[in-house]
Write a protein that binds this DNA or RNA. Structure first.
Lengths: 249, 249
DNA sequence: GAAATTCCTGCACAAAAACGCAGAAAGCAG
DNA sequence: CTGCTTTCTGCGTTTTTGTGCAGGAATTTC
């Protein structure tokens, strides 16, 4: 088993169960504890997991249990959310993924908006639920504790039955060469299904994530219609994406 | 169980119930009292809890102390929840409705329990999600904003595909003549489906709701296996139900 | 004020981590 | 192919960490 392969597997396990035990992993993958430890160390250095005595925890673990009121780059996300809200009009069917940027979008929805929002993200659903006029459709399946989103074949099948007017994707990494990439296999499957089931695909991404890449590919730039960041549309960082045919806001 | 995980659980419990007793925690998590004490000490050093003789208090608890926690029947619900927890064992598939009693049940689940919980109730799902060892399956469909539960034919169809070991129903009204009754047509449909899909049906009800009725019928007493209230099993109020063949706890 | 908890300290033991090292595998130039 | 470097992996040893236990001190409770 290759090193990259092994680390991808570990990351997947962490994302799925919120924790891993080194002892368990080393018997599962059949390598020494040292190797596992080194892998965890590397993943921790990259900020993908949190290493603790005996194993590792997912990053969201701390957010779940130690409520973190200062959300990272909140202001940028608010800017992005406001730009995105402008794309939604009454009567639309809107499909959204999870992620903090999407939450910010949910919070920015004007109260008079009447639309239908569809998502499998629990935090997003919570926000939509408190909105006075929007209808909320929840995609059911097994919950991934890490991403707080429903994942699995049922969820994907349900999404594929839909045809939404617009789809908003929280983005983990985007880059001209690889397109949109992510690090959780199951989340990627969901995002792909969402893209297929939407007339229009909009990516929300803070500038920091632009020109970064993750191991698993979601889609190419040709499959997205619009990229929204907190930067002005003429920022040089965005030029390559405009050249690649993506609308930018 | 990892140290961080354990501390997270303790913190969650503190935030949930505003206090914890070390003696209770150590029997719940199955570690020595010393370990718990050391954990509490660490959490206190980080300012996350306030350590007191015999346990710890949440930070907000000290600022505003409401002896009854706002809800009058909270303690009753806790009693009910603790009785109900005893019916769940490792590996079970558990189907639950919504309601505050179910939330209390969710909060009382022992951390080492490994089971699969299935529900369409958003508040219940939120609680299940924080539990370290249980798997959570979310029933998807349109969200009913006032009951915060997914309702509709999709949800019902999904439930009918299941066969759960046990089903816990929060009860709105129960009475010997009409059985279990409710006032929301869509919620009733769901509860009926849940009853059909479970080997064992358990009703959770505070004594106050016993011998009351609502307009829509969920099921007769013959369809439920057990009724859990905060009363002792030999309370005269429960006698008619025992006579009707319902087990009582 | 006496009994019962709970707390603190030091200690022992086990599990896990860190470290250095050596062999294996892969990549590369000639 | 050969010889060289680089990377990866596993092994033994030493350190560190986490946990439980035993005692005596401190506290709550009645």
């Amino acid at each position: 088993m290759l090193k990259k392969e092994r680390q991808a597997y570990i990351l997947h396990q962490v994302n799925l169960h919120n924790k891993v035990l080194s002892s368990l992993l080393c018997s599962e993958i059949n390598v020494s504890e040292d190797t596992i430890r080194r892998d965890l160390q590397e993943l921790a250095d990259e900020g993908k997991v949190i290493k603790v005595h005996g194993g590792a925890l997912s990053h969201s673990f701390n957010q779940v249990y130690f409520p973190n009121n200062g959300v990272y780059s909140q202001n940028h996300k608010k800017t992005i959310a406001e730009k995105a809200v402008g794309l939604i009009s009454n009567g639309m069917f809107v499909l959204t993924s999870g992620g903090t940027t999407i939450i910010e979008l949910a919070r920015s929805l004007p109260p008079q908006l009447k639309a239908t929002f569809i998502s499998g993200s629990i935090p997003a659903i919570l926000e939509y639920m408190y909105h006075p006029n929007i209808e909320v459709i929840l995609i059911g399946d097994k919950i991934s504790k890490n991403s707080k989103i429903t994942v699995g074949s049922e969820a994907i099948a349900k999404i594929k039955q839909l045809k939404a007017d617009i789809c908003f994707l929280g983005t983990n990494a985007i880059d001209v060469e690889h397109g949109i990439t992510d690090n959780d296999w199951e989340v990627v499957q969901l995002k792909r299904a969402m893209i297929e089931s939407s007339k229009k695909v909009v990516c929300l991404s803070i500038a920091e994530k632009i020109n970064s890449a993750q191991p698993i590919r979601v889609c190419g730039l040709d499959e997205i219609d619009m990229l929204i960041t907190e930067l002005p549309a003429n920022d040089p960082l965005l030029k390559p994406y405009i050249d690649a045919g993506v609308r930018v806001a």
